[in-house]
Design a protein around this nucleic acid. Structure first.
Lengths: 228, 228
DNA sequence: AACGGTATGATTGTTGACAATCATACCGCT
DNA sequence: AGCGGTATGATTGTCAACAATCATACCGTT
């Protein structure tokens, strides 16, 4: 049995899990704009689900920072603020540096393969001008690093950020309708990630994040001007 | 109105919030041992609450890592593993170093006061041999740092770890029935935190965490031998 | 005895109805 | 007009009953 490469089956086929997935998708794709009020009765009808599982799903998304809830008043798609963006990027910098420190001595052939393969997918998506895919593949590229750390807590933490990050990317893309100069940046990222200089990589992470931050920095005002 | 020092009122007086609080308290105090199966009908009867809010509370505690849930099968108080402890401590090291980097240039008089006052409380609790209080005050001491960062994401992340950390401390204390040499360690911690050498502080955090880790390292086997 | 299949009981998942709470609009007063 | 108070409608919070799923024990077969 050398082909014992089976993924753990997802037994979580509860309604709640499906609702989480659907809502998450709707939010990070921009379909549900930030600040939108989520009325339980409407949503439950829309999803063909009772309010019970819906509420449980909402609780989960609140913990992921995608939804804000005020008791007896309402639940809203998380609003975007400058501070939230700053925090996300500074925090993410620390997380990713930690990830590289962890993975550095354990980078094997599979790590290298996955990273390169993911870079190709990202490049292809950008070249074909498929913006949604480009966003997804960029996040997947970074995800490779976290996945190979073998650090569940770190991975969970990253997954928590990922949703909001995805949302910011989407909103930025919708506001400017251009993908930006991603390719070169990620070429260097991967090269360094497969190289021998950890410090150089860590510095590049800081720099890489700073670039990303600069891109979405004006998101708040951009959005206000685009969707008045 | 110079005495405008009012805390934001907690409008979250829903049953769900109360249940979260109660369950969290019961778990981190060791009242509900790790691995305990939580049967919804029993719990809801015990708490005098219906299963609806209880289930929502469980969802929240699952996200905090204090409860594990397997669909259609059962929910259990999170089990303790060596890997989980390692991850918690390594992750916490990064978090706290990040916190000090953030707070360093913004340490004001209030920061210093709170830190000292909290150290006194911790010392008092240890000297009076009040073990539960000592654990709480130690966590509160570290909490001061996170609180003054003004970084919500970091604070949320810390709060997520705090519950599990509290649990580990409690179990360690119950297994060995001694508080350990906390005082000196935290004296130095506070001294450095109020000093001028950030690098020294960061190094001490690593060291401090390592000490903490060493203490709870054998928790898994300890527990197995104490509660067979 | 070991294995495969099946019935049973318990537990979780889900639902629709009911109660508590809040935001809005309206009215009267100053 | 501006302010305070009150009724109303909508929405969230909560509950108790029903359905789906799973773990266990039992039984027959090989």
């Amino acid at each position: 049995m050398s082909l014992l490469n089976l993924k753990p089956i997802n037994k979580d086929r509860t309604l709640r899990a499906n609702v989480v997935e659907q809502l998450r998708e709707a939010i990070i794709s921009g379909e549900l704009a930030p600040g939108t009020k989520l009325v339980e009765s409407q949503l439950s009808a829309l999803l063909g689900v009772s309010r019970g599982p819906l509420r449980e799903a909402i609780r989960q998304l609140v913990d992921q920072g995608l939804i804000e809830s005020i008791p007896y008043t309402g639940t809203y798609v998380a609003n975007i603020t400058v501070k939230a963006i700053q925090e996300l990027y500074s925090f993410r910098t620390e997380l990713e540096q930690f990830a590289f420190k962890l993975v550095w001595e354990n980078r094997g052939e599979d790590f290298r393969k996955e990273l390169n393969s993911q870079l190709e997918k990202l490049t292809a998506a950008i070249k074909s001008n498929n913006k949604e895919a480009a966003i997804f593949e960029e996040l997947e590229l970074h995800n490779v690093v976290y996945k190979h750390c073998g650090h569940e807590l770190l991975q969970d933490s990253w997954h928590r950020l990922r949703g909001r990050l995805h949302l910011y990317f989407t909103l930025h893309q919708q506001a400017h309708n251009r993908t930006g100069p991603y390719i070169d940046a990620h070429d260097k990222y991967v090269t360094l990630a497969l190289g021998d200089d950890l410090d150089a990589m860590l510095n590049h992470v800081t720099e890489h994040m700073q670039q990303g931050y600069n891109k979405v920095e004006n998101l708040v005002s951009d959005i206000r001007s685009h969707l008045p």
